[in-house]
């Protein structure tokens, strides 16, 4: 992911930050928040598809992570861990009956990347728009699995742990999610292949 590459935290510096944060150093933790806030927000927003909720969830994820930081294994990367916490909160948020999902308004939808996609620019933009809509139409549980696999690159076992479901359920939800999305953007995928 682009964000991962650009953030690309220096592992030794990160371990140092975590060590200091574990000792109660809030400025060190603030720096960790700064490094990972975009990634955490993106995970939450891709799942709940509401900016206000995603902000709440992202900040709550950082608060929870801090409280659990004492037992965090510094040999492990911080990013996937905090992303999993955010994903779990996002799914819980959706499960709550008090929240009714309100889709992101079109002007707030994810903007197509400026980078060249697998298709020609015009076609790619259109395809990305269709895909974004299809993502929004996915059942939340399928979307969460798709986000954690495709954007966070977690294994099925890790996704299962993050969402408190079995690996078999991860497998079936992901398969169904991909099939729906593939169907939605099929003409673009085939057009892209014909051009490629």
């Amino acid at each position: 992911m682009l964000e991962r590459q650009t953030l690309g935290p220096d592992p030794s510096a990160e371990v140092d930050l975590i060590t200091r944060a574990q000792a109660g150093n809030l400025p060190a933790y603030e720096e960790l928040v700064r490094r990972y806030q975009r990634r955490v927000y993106a995970v939450a927003c891709r799942i709940v598809r509401r900016h206000d909720l995603a902000e709440d969830i992202a900040q709550e994820a950082f608060l929870r992570a801090y409280r659990a930081l004492g037992r965090f294994d510094r040999a492990r990367p911080f990013g996937p861990w905090i992303a999993r916490i955010a994903a779990n909160l996002a799914v819980n948020e959706y499960r709550s009956p008090r929240r009714r999902e309100q889709e992101l308004p079109p002007e707030h939808a994810e903007k197509p990347s400026a980078q060249a996609g697998p298709l020609d620019n015009l076609l790619a933009r259109e395809a990305e728009g269709v895909l974004d809509q299809a993502l929004g139409a996915l059942p939340q549980e399928q979307r969460a699995v798709f986000v954690l696999r495709v954007y966070e690159e977690l294994s099925y076992q890790e996704i299962a742990e993050a969402l408190d479901i079995s690996p078999g359920t991860v497998m079936s939800r992901l398969s169904r999610a991909r099939e729906r999305l593939r169907t939605a953007v099929l003409p673009y995928l085939r057009a892209g292949r014909a051009q490629g």
Binding site: M1, L2, E3, Q37, R38, R39, Y41, A42, C45, R46, H51, A54, E55, A58, H108, E110, K111, P112, S113, A114, Q115, G117, P118, L119, A124, A127, E128, L131, D132, L135, F146, V150, Y151, L181, V185, Y188, L189
Partner: peptide
Amino acid sequence: DLARGLAAPLP
């Protein structure tokens, strides 16, 4: 690949 091409939403 197409999904990864979608830019991350920004706060």
